[in-house]
Nucleic acid binder design. Sequence first.
RNA 1: GCCGUCGUAGCUCAGCCUGGUAGAGCGUGUGCUUGGUAAGCACAAGGUCGCGGGAUCGAAUCCCGUCGACGGCUCCA
Length: 670
Amino acid sequence: MPEKEKKIKVKKGTPIAQSVPRELLPEIVAARIGDTAVDLSFIPDRDEEAELISADTEDGLRILRHSAAHLTAQAVLSIYKDAKLNAGPPTEDGFYYDIQMDPISLEDLGKIEARMKEISARKLKIERIEMTREDLEKKFAQNRFKLDKIVAKVKPGQRSTVYRQGDFEDFCTGPHVPDTSYLGAVKLLSVASTNYLGDVNREKMVRIYGTAFPDRKSLEHYLAMRDEALKRDHRKIGQEMDLFTFNSERAPGFPLYAPNGQWIRSMMVGFMKNLNEKYGWQEVWTPHLFKDTMWKQSGHYAKYKDNMYLFQLSDGDSYAIKPMNCPGHITIFERTMYSYRDLPVKYFEAGTVYRYEKSGEVGGLTRPRAFTIDDGHAFLRMDQMVAEITAVLAMVREAFSAFFESPEMIYDLSVIDKENYDNYLISYHCNSCNTISDIRKAAVEELRCPACGSTGLEPDFRRWDAATDALRMALQSNGIPYKEFPGEAAFYGPKIDIHVKDALGRSWQLSTVQLDFFMPINFELSFINEQGKKETPVMVHRAIYGSYERFLVILLESYAGRLPTWLSPLQCYVVPVSQSFSQYGQKVAEALKARGIRTVLDDSNETMNRKIRNVRRLRPSYIVVVGAKEAESNTVSVRNRDEKQSVHELDRFAEALEKEIDERRIQQTL
RNA sequence: GCCGUCGUAGCUCAGCCUGGUAGAGCGUGUGCUUGGUAAGCACAAGGUCGCGGGAUCGAAUCCCGUCGACGGCUCCA
């Protein structure tokens, strides 16, 4: 969204609104002086330059939506007198308000929304009122959620603000739109429950979700997109296309792929195998079970045992079904002694992992209990890090360009939060014996030097810094824009996560590239360096699709199931006009199948119209109709995914289609 | 795991509030029809109403429990 640059001069002693050009006023919601966003009613105490914030900018929308949250709260309070407000922030595409009240249902939203419209139409002025902490405490004495916030955010003796519209007041720093008439295009969307401060032991709250836009039209557009997203839900499309099933009694949370779904999967797996080989990754296979001792060594057991499928055999040995592929790949790396000349050693596998997700967390293919990662692990020398990460980034771009016309990719660099490192595996330097040890503080009872038992340990971030620098370098030298997120790193190292935006503007986290110095240490991995000495390699963990399941979701939802032909489980559906042309239909189907085109001939005793109607849910790439005309001229009458019809000579058609599939064309050629 | 909503035929859903042993459309099967690009006609099969328990003469319907799905919260190596 382009930020509109509108700067105006504002005069000391007069509200900003008075200096805003009259024609702009309806779309301006607030202003920025320096770095601070302020209300239009703000009166500067000296002449200033102010930047106008219009409702269609990112900041403007947030202000508008936050004001809409206030409006929601006002409406709720006017209907449900006992409701107690907690907080109502804007979100990425709307807002919510958390309110302690009796549960309400979707039907109740209409009533609340109607009240909101009324209030909006009254054009209530939204006023900012400064108060002392003591006055705030008095005003919100009946609401301990607000009191908590006042205590937490306003120091004794300090002042803060309340926003008032009509009889409604909320503790809030603002800014807000000038009056409620700016909130004409609002919509309440859903209701959910939550707990105060996200803590299951605290009070239950009702969360009302909604959104707001500067005008009716953009709201309508948003709602249309939202409807479209619902229509494209992969669970619905997967059902229609007969791709997969879930059996909630036999295997809750585990997808089972039917033939059509498995066909798509194998296309994706095959594509990834080629891509990996092109970039020098070698395919391996690892078992689905390992003894728990390995998971203890890798550190996964300590951190994730609650999410692992663990079991014990009658002889007493304990096993875990793999929740990760890396220890398996490490085990393969360990089988032999590598020379520095052999590095990088790069293994990949379409590795299915099993994670026990808690009951409320599973959902469709986006959060299954078993999923397959296009997993790769590289073992490198320090001097190979930047080059290898650069190569992985290129691989990612190549992969996504094959599936999407012009994929929009967003890069996040997740780094350690040095203020808050207990959860990370880092090196500690012992002040009394100078030993360096690698410890994750959160996983041990007490932080002690393993060599001398001293508690005088200093964190040493040098390895984290080197890894982070390598990732930054790879991004920067390729001119890739990225954002850094402190505290988001994996426990063993920093990572780059790559998000892709889909057709409906939603962004999905897919690829991840992680650097890891610690797993090689845990497993005492080594290679022989130029000096003939053992040296510890660096590991890169990377996945490109992320998981096949998630990637399938994105493909299905962004193409609404109408996949590029090479990925389509039903490439040609041959319909003879009547059974008297079954023979020619068969000839056509055979010709297509001979070229490896997935073809189904429907010579059943049904009308052509019904066949076409019923096959649509399967999203065939091409519907091929044949009758007297076609049989005579050896042609086919073809309808593509966009309902475009055309007639082709049979061989020409088969040839073109074969080419379209071989070249993995995204668009249809006919 | 927590909160809320929901669970009836392969699919989509009605019936539940106000108890009297189950309904529609699509799909499936059979027959008729032999058709020119999204609804030709007829008949039929198909459900112990997620599972378990309770109160009732009687439960899909009311109550309790349980499993599961969905929307959120928390989590996501």
